[in-house]
């Protein structure tokens, strides 16, 4: 919760910077790309987040990474600030919060859809329409396939999860059949 609060404060500050020149979408995308890269490599996280390494070396490493990812100056300065304050490992949380804020600012909502089998284009379009109608916002679908669901699908929009999978029904049936205790 403390990390989430900190992440929201940093994301809000970066969003305010992006709103000044309407570059919040690019900032969110670049920060998400950097967080994704950071999440891919444990060695990179160790090199950037461990205070045993000199700050100058960590800054040099981050600078090289930003150059390779072609990040803007605002994002570079932002991640350097995180390095100086020892908050660089909170970067994935900040990126997620920034994405939520940018989507909210743009009137969008992200929906994570997990299905037992891949959805066809028509079902995906119908699902997006149904979710937009239900939440009253534009929906960005993020799709996952999980065969353990057996059948059906699960949607997660913000904090709301709608589980329509066969696995959930079987678990509910099992809980209903088993006596309490």
């Amino acid at each position: 919760m403390i990390v989430g609060s900190i992440a929201r404060r940093y994301a809000k500050a970066l969003l305010s910077l992006g709103l000044e020149d309407q570059s919040q979408e690019a900032l969110a995308r670049q920060l998400d790309e950097l967080a994704h890269t950071l999440g891919q490599s444990a060695e990179l996280r160790e090199a950037l987040g461990n205070p045993i390494f000199p700050l100058s070396e960590r800054k040099a490493t981050m600078e090289a990474l930003c150059t390779r990812l072609a990040l803007t100056r605002i994002v570079r300065n932002f991640v350097m600030l995180l390095l100086e304050r020892g908050r660089v490992l909170a970067l994935p949380d900040i990126a997620r919060e920034l994405g939520v804020m940018v989507d909210a600012h743009a009137g969008r909502v992200r929906a994570l859809v997990t299905s037992a089998t891949p959805l066809g284009p028509d079902l995906e379009a119908r699902l997006r329409v149904a979710l937009e109608k239900r939440h009253g916002k534009k929906v960005l679908l993020e799709k996952l396939v999980d065969p353990t669901l057996i059948g059906g699908l699960v949607t997660e929009v913000g904090d709301v999860t709608c589980d329509g999978s066969i696995r959930y029904q079987m678990e509910a049936l099992k809980a209903a059949l088993l006596p309490a205790g």
Binding site: A116, T117, L123, A130, G152, L153
Partner: peptide
């Protein structure tokens, strides 16, 4: 599977 998704869409609506 398609029937499951169809029914889910109906319930959403």
């Amino acid at each position: 599977q398609r029937g499951f998704v169809e029914r889910y869409l109906v319930s959403l609506a």
